[in-house]
């Protein structure tokens, strides 16, 4: 009798886990991403309906340079290198991304070609969110779509600021080097 009860509860837990775990974990993962952090669980559940999970093997490309961008990717687990090819066709690593990071987010704005490739360096699971779905979301749930777009704009703005700072820093260094060169001459 006890065994039977045990088996029953086991099955109950099992079915419960199957029924709830997928969307639960997906919502949890989405919740951790800065881009979506301001959304409520209910809103994230709506987004999880068009979040596509993909599994990649080592040395597989998530996307390659110059392909038209259609989706943003979130790393669920694993490791992705953002790479660019040099003149000798070697891949130069620009950034190394881990679980919780996002990449290719500019594809949410338009379909302009990818500026770099994304190469998987450890077995990786990603979640893809497509621009087309986001555009539909803007029509069906403008408040959710608006929040995402706002955050996307903020992130892009921060990156632009960082890049501007970087450029200014480099200009300064170049000027310093020029001065140094002039002094030596």
């Amino acid at each position: 009798m006890e065994d039977l009860v045990k088996t029953k509860t086991l099955w109950k837990d099992f079915s419960k886990e199957i029924l709830t775990s997928k969307s639960q974990t997906l919502v949890d993962i989405l919740k951790k991403i800065p881009l979506l952090s301001e959304l409520s669980r209910r809103e994230l559940k709506i987004i999880s309906k068009f979040a596509y999970e993909r599994t990649f093997e080592v040395n597989e490309f998530v996307f390659e340079t110059n392909q038209p961008g259609a989706a943003m990717f979130i790393i669920k687990e694993g490791e992705v290198k953002i790479v660019k090819q040099n003149e000798n066709n070697e891949f130069i690593e620009i950034a190394l991304l881990e679980a919780g990071d996002i990449f290719g987010e500019l594809a949410l704005l338009d379909s302009s070609p990818r500026s770099a490739g994304a190469l998987v360096s450890k077995p990786t699971k990603t979640i893809a969110i497509f621009r087309e779905d986001l555009n539909n979301l803007l029509k069906t749930h403008p408040e959710i779509g608006g929040k995402i777009m706002m955050h996307l704009a903020i992130i892009t703005g921060k990156r632009l600021k960082a890049t501007t700072n970087h450029v200014m820093q480099m200009e300064k260094e170049i000027n310093n080097l020029k001065d140094l060169l002039n002094e030596k001459q």
């Binding site: 993909r54 961008g69 259609a70 087309e132």
Partner: peptide, 13 residues
Amino acid sequence: PNRYFEMAFTTFA
């Protein structure tokens, strides 16, 4: 397959 994933979605849409 992964290689055609983005393309398949865009085509579909």
